[in-house]
Design a protein around this nucleic acid. Structure first.
Lengths: 233, 233
DNA sequence: AATATGCTTCGGTTAGGATCGAAGTATGAA
DNA sequence: TTCATACTTCGATCCTAACCGAAGCATATT
């Protein structure tokens, strides 16, 4: 058995708890310094440094020097997607780190999944799109309808420039807290950016939670109404 | 950092070379005994037994007792998809176990990817579908067109019963040897089954390679013509 | 220049887990 | 009943890799 890709290497990289914590922290989408990642992982700076170089060699993260800091991010969207997949699978098998679901209710409600919105609000957004015919689905694949482009335009997002050849426009991503799908892809990213730019919400400094202002929450809920419970896309 | 799914557990399971070899062997889609998996992994039966119980506890595989044998398979489609994803990611970072690509040319040409066809032939099949308008794509998602249902029906496969709510009809799956996508999903599975049933090809007993007969190869190539190189879906 | 901060490298320790031999259990065959 | 096959469990060994203290390097501040 010496054929094929070396999945064991990727597995080993993700399999260490300290490295897994670092990667989870980087799923927040923001660049973090080695010191911050050491804290997130609960190890000293020396240990973290060793882990970070291994993750970089493995192609999971990349770094950018800036002054005397080194900022680390996930290498690219593929790395984020991979981690999302593994999280979804782990959650589907009940492998949670502290009993059922996150303790933090804010995290259950809305959090960042690499570059898009996850949690209750993320799921609601996709449900709303599907029930209103903005997005159509056939089992797993998602497509924005003609009418959907108009509706999304009214939110203030132009769909056209989001269609790139590298990344899909919309993609479903299994939500580990809701056990449902939420919206990923360039559209999912654009929507989250839009909420943050408009000041409807901000990222928590400590976790991946996304905190909505009262007004932002009101606007979000009216933009994404739930007519009736829709089937899992 | 104690939130969320335990990705480290999944990583650790996949991260051991012996276990990774077992999982790779099970990607062939056939149920294998503990002894066979021990051979595939290159360890003794005692060691294999320990690994197998860990993989089962982790929800990656399941077993079925039959007489004095125990047959192991991947737990479900989700487990297969997860491994496919990791393989694709590992290949995209150049993490191959023995230099560029598989040594075995048969494996490069056609092999089983859990339950569908991969390799040169798998990629060609999807390319042909896309260039002929049988399948339409928007970045990542794949959809069978109206005309496509007819065309696939002429091959001898009825699309209607393949549409299940649990698994998508068609899905793209990154091919680690070709670095292109091939066709997965229930349609991909049905096509492979069809080739095997018709006797156009058979599975190799030693590896995941799919061996076409001369006649099967002729039919395959005429069924899936390549008009001109099509862009990566 | 001198000092502080951020990070890496080196060296030695330690713990977890992969490994296998040997013995034990279950199923089937003679 | 006896023997053989398939697999699991136990116990001991051994090795890797995670870990941190100490020292070193680089960049910024004074």
């Amino acid at each position: 058995m010496k054929e094929g890709p070396d999945i064991a290497r990727i597995g080993t990289l993700i399999g260490d708890p300290a490295r897994a914590n670092m990667l989870t922290a980087l799923m927040g989408g923001q660049a973090l310094t080695a010191t911050e990642l050491a804290q997130a992982a609960g190890v000293t700076l020396q240990t973290a440094s060793s882990h970070l170089s291994k993750l970089e060699d493995g192609g999971l993260i990349s770094q950018r020097k800036q002054g005397r800091h080194r900022y680390f991010t996930l290498a690219d969207g593929a790395a984020g997607t991979l981690l999302e997949n593994i999280m979804g699978f782990a959650a589907s098998r009940g492998h949670l780190r502290h009993q059922p679901g996150p303790k933090d209710p804010a995290l259950r409600k809305a959090r960042i999944c690499y570059d898009h919105l996850a949690g209750d609000y993320g799921v609601r957004m996709l449900d709303s799109f599907v029930s209103r015919g903005v997005i159509r689905t056939d089992g797993e694949n998602l497509m924005v309808t003609e009418q959907g482009r108009v509706d999304i335009g009214q939110i203030g997002i132009d769909v056209a420039p989001l269609v790139s050849s590298r990344r899909p426009l919309c993609k479903s991503c299994l939500d580990w807290s809701e056990r449902r799908s939420h919206l990923a892809g360039t559209l999912g990213k654009a929507l989250l950016s839009h909420f943050l730019e408009k000041g409807w919400a901000r990222r928590s400094s400590e976790s991946r939670a996304v905190l909505f202002t009262p007004e932002g929450e009101r606007k979000f809920l009216s933009l994404f109404p739930l007519e009736r419970p829709s089937p899992e896309p």
